[in-house]
Design a protein around this nucleic acid. Sequence first.
DNA 1: TTTTTCCTGCAAGTTATTTGCAACTCGCAT
DNA 2: ATGCGAGTTGCAAATAACTTGCAGGAAAAA
Lengths: 138, 138
Amino acid sequence: MADKNHELRDKGLRLTPQRQLVLEAVRALGHATPEEVAEKVRATHPGINLSTVYRNLETLENVGLVQHTHLGHGGATYHAAEELTHLHLVCGKCGSVGDAPIETAAPFVNTLIDEYGFKTDVTHFAIYGTCANCTAKS
Amino acid sequence: MADKNHELRDKGLRLTPQRQLVLEAVRALGHATPEEVAEKVRATHPGINLSTVYRNLETLENVGLVQHTHLGHGGATYHAAEELTHLHLVCGKCGSVGDAPIETAAPFVNTLIDEYGFKTDVTHFAIYGTCANCTAKS
DNA sequence: TTTTTCCTGCAAGTTATTTGCAACTCGCAT
DNA sequence: ATGCGAGTTGCAAATAACTTGCAGGAAAAA
Ligand SMILES: [Mn+2]
Ligand SMILES: [Mn+2]
Ligand SMILES: [Zn+2]
Ligand SMILES: [Zn+2]
């Protein structure tokens, strides 16, 4: 950290404290809802407004630094872009979220391209089902 | 249709006009949001309340007559259970929803069972990506 | 510095869905 | 047939999750 953080300015964005904090929070949290991001940021900077968080998540997504995913029936959760290298296996019974490497889906993705010309982004929506644990119990 | 429709009573549910209408609407519409179901039902029965539609969709889902799916960032859409035999390929650019047979995903589903013991329901969330049409244009 | 443009907080507005509750009605038991 | 009680309904109000308008404030260009 010799000089100022340029990764935001390089994307043509202004470097505001709020924006940096939102990005740091997303990176620190892994999967996070806007509400959770706000909470994290407020731990050190109580004044930040929730709408600022929403706006910055959108802005950061537009320039490719973060991405959203749908893990459940409700709202989206955010990831740092670098970190989106896994599938999300969401269990409908217990709510657990497991990970699996994206390569697991590679053959499936290829089939969709070959047969339908459809380019899948397998991380955008979760893979929904029942986890091993819950299957065992029932 | 010799005697009364028993499929609802067989599930332990009361046979109310509203409930039958909701089920018929879901069957007639293919993919439908609660709002669209309400609209369809109101074409013949204007008095029906939206909350009644929501409650009946939930009830019908509990007994397995309908199921919901997430096709986009927003709310759920409902299908008749018998009819849920395809994947939904949702294009993030143009919003189109294409279908593909579930068998397309069979190898992928098997991999997840074998490697993680995870039983996937591939129809619950859409498969998100970019359709052939939109890929061609860009 | 000054100016321009972007960003932020705050309040109000949406949209989608849920809930409390009193009135009603379906289906079973007289 | 008639009555009863649990399940359902309509309606209004409440939530939840965002989104928007706007006026003041801060970042970067000039
Ligand atoms: Mn769902
Ligand atoms: Mn999305
Ligand atoms: Zn589970
Ligand atoms: Zn498309």
